[in-house]
Design a protein around this nucleic acid. Structure first.
Lengths: 215, 215
DNA sequence: AATTCTATCTATCGACCTATAGAATAAGTC
DNA sequence: GACTTATTCTATAGGTCGATAGATAGAATT
């Protein structure tokens, strides 16, 4: 016990950090919201998962809606930034679209519940945070749309396609994965590869359709 | 008066049919469920839309869950049958898949709310009816899957593709339309055409550089 | 040892929501 | 006009849920 100022380096915040269980609480919340939906889930359900009392949750969030906002934020965070970074790369539109699809799918692995809650329950956020989160969402749509348009302009993609509709198709396809990727036994890379192939090349076999005479 | 057994044929049910407003009530229910979700909606909300008292709704359905079941049923009905009929046609897999996509999208027009509720809220049905409705759902998936596999077998579609994943992709893409088709200003035929093109041919331009390279 | 901080608990309030019971009204029907 | 059936109403029981207040136990700090 001689005057040792050693442990005072980071103000000796050895274990005094408040709300150490916060990550665990938010994880359980995401799970319950993903399973039952925001209004279908009760704070009691969340408490049960954690083995604590319902009222104890309010040490970690101020309201059920605030908890939803926390979950939704972790469900979108990163999507926009990594999307923007990919779109800015000096590669072909094909390659960038494939990367966009892949990066859009990968969060299913480690934060599937968060993504699912964001996709299905964000409508129940209080108006203000819903708007804020909606902006990020629309931003991501624009990134996809723009890469597709660049692909058309570069002669990589079919002329005359509706970039908006294609964007909605691709995002719909990817987002749907949040509802089945746990039941189906497919790895994220396999899904990303199949989806990319589908979007870039389609199902039909390559040989040109020069002559309509099929068979 | 005189022994006239004439009017007794349909018991003269001129206007004595019970629950004449039932279609209107179920329509309002679908709308409210689509907007706020099953648990987020109250029976009061539905009554407000109709301009009647909350308790009056129970003349038309026996419980809120029963109302959800009615809505969900109208949201799936027809999908499976028309899908099966299309799959059985003697046309190319390409053509049949296009028709499947188109017929899967068209109910958005006249029963969008029902479809939306089925897609988003069926999880909240009581176990039994959820199972029953789930069977129809899986049946439809199998129809898509099979047409795709037939396309591969016939040499129309790429060999080696994962028919299950492609099915999930196509259905995800189509189902997502239920959440945006009201906001976007696109007609169902335009959506169906764009989606079909995307799925069959992909985005990439058909490379004419298909050099047969002898052999 | 005394004090402060962290995390959880007990207890409960008020609001809201589904569903029931039975009365009241409206619309034919005899 | 009396009767019957269809529809909506009033009133409320009964239950659940989110949220607050205050107590408590343990750990860390001084």
């Amino acid at each position: 016990m001689i005057g040792m100022t050693v442990a005072t380096l980071p103000t000796s915040r050895r274990s005094a950090s408040p709300r150490r269980r916060a990550p665990q609480i938010i994880e359980a919340t995401a799970m319950v919201f993903a399973e039952r939906g925001f209004h279908g889930a009760t704070t009691q359900d969340i408490a049960d998962v954690l083995g604590i009392r319902q009222a104890s949750l309010y040490y970690y969030f101020s309201s059920k809606e605030a908890a939803l906002e926390l979950v939704c934020l972790r469900g979108v965070e990163g999507f926009f930034e990594t999307g923007k970074a990919i779109a800015a790369r000096p590669e072909s539109a094909q390659k960038r679209l494939s990367l966009l699809i892949s990066s859009h799918l990968s969060p299913m692995l480690d934060r599937g519940n968060f993504v699912k809650v964001f996709l299905n329950e964000r409508q129940h956020l209080p108006t203000e945070s819903r708007r804020r989160i909606g902006r990020w969402s629309r931003g991501l749509e624009r990134i996809f749309e723009q890469v597709i348009e660049e692909g058309v302009a570069a002669g990589e993609f079919r002329a005359g396609l509706d970039a908006r509709l294609v964007t909605l198709a691709v995002l719909g396809m990817c987002n749907a994965a949040s509802s089945w990727y746990l039941k189906e036994n497919k790895g994220v890379p396999a899904i990303a590869a199949e989806f990319s192939n589908l979007v870039i090349d389609g199902l039909a076999i390559r040989p040109a359709k020069r002559r309509p005479s099929r068979r």
